[in-house]
Simulated scan of single mutants.
Amino acid sequence: MHYDYVPISKRNPLRWPNGQRLAIFLTINFEYWDPVQESEKPYYPGGPGIVGGNLPGNVYDNPNFTWREYGQRVGVWRLFDVLDAEDVAASCTMNAKMALERREVIDAALERDWEIVAHNYVQDELLTDYMFDEAAERDVIRRTLDVYEQAVGKKARGWLSSSLRSTLNTIDILAEEGLLFITDLLNDDQPYLVETRSGRPMVSISYTSEVNDFSFLRQGLTVDTGFQMFKEQFDWLYAESETSGRFMNIGLHPHVIGQPFRIRALRDFIRYAKQFDGVWFAKREDIATWYLDHHQEHIPPKG
């Protein structure tokens, strides 16, 4: 994996197709957590818990497991209702266990023609566990992609690692497995190419840990200050997009944003953003495919 350092001030203006200015990704993370693991090590569930303290993996953590399961039983269906009412689509991520254990959620997204991005096998397993064992990392990725294809009916084109914990080998492996884009790299508001050892280029389309519903938990945001966070990000990027296109990602988790006292922040933001020209709720795959054909107009190859 290699990518050039090209600051945004040194790039050509990015011109999205059809005169669009700002692409918005509403990234709803479809994630399953195992109730217990066969390990006495501290359990790593991914993301903050609602009750503090880490139990060993082989000890059932009832409040945190059932709090997250609220998103699968209730919260995600509230999200479906809101996005249906506002006539917008999400760009979802899905770990393999979610497809195996909560298939109804995946089928509901597919019925709406929402994008689904592969998101590891299970949420509490990190690729960094295999930093020094590439064969084991590739096995996790392949098992994930196999389940993805069975559940979605086509091969995955993109990837988000659990908790964004990828290794220096991950992007090379993904390219060799035929994927097109990666969302792990948190370093941009525009797409760019990543070189891989196979010579197959990967498009980076950044996720975000900042504009994320976990901020409601970590920063104590309310429904109004959460909306303000979304709006501030949008307003600045939209102004910048007058001269060069941008994208904006919002990271969402059904057990967090899907709570009744938070979800209005998302609904109000969608209504706000839809008032502006040149804004579209995009699929990452569409952007990645387009960018492969146009990247030289944006960031010419060095040399």
Rank of each mutant, 00 (worst) to 15 (best):
R218D: 00
L127D: 06
P45K: 13
N58L: 06
S204P: 05
G52C: 03
I250L: 15
L221V: 02
N29Q: 06
I8M: 09
A273H: 10
G46S: 07
H298K: 04
K283N: 13
P13E: 08
N64K: 07
T167G: 05
R157G: 10
S204Y: 04
R165P: 01
G49R: 12
F227S: 04
Q275E: 02
L22V: 05
S161G: 15
Q72F: 02
T225Q: 11
I28E: 01
F276M: 11
D113S: 15
R142L: 12
D213W: 09
Y44W: 15
L193K: 15
Q150R: 12
L252G: 04
G57A: 00
P301T: 05
P254S: 08
P17N: 11
R284I: 10
L160Y: 11
E137M: 08
C92P: 00
D113C: 05
I28T: 12
E104H: 15
G71K: 07
Q275V: 06
Q275Y: 00
H2D: 08
K283L: 08
K155V: 10
S244N: 07
P13H: 00
N54V: 10
S161Q: 13
Y130K: 09
R21N: 02
K155L: 11
G251P: 01
A239K: 14
R21E: 04
E69M: 15
V76M: 08
G278L: 05
I24H: 04
G49D: 11
D34K: 10
E242C: 10
G46P: 00
V203Y: 01
N58S: 13
H119N: 12
F247I: 07
R138A: 05
V223Y: 02
G303R: 11
Q190S: 10
K274M: 02
L185C: 06
P260A: 02
K283R: 15
E40Q: 05
V76Y: 03
L22F: 03
N54G: 04
M131P: 02
P301G: 04
A99T: 08
Q72V: 11
L186K: 08
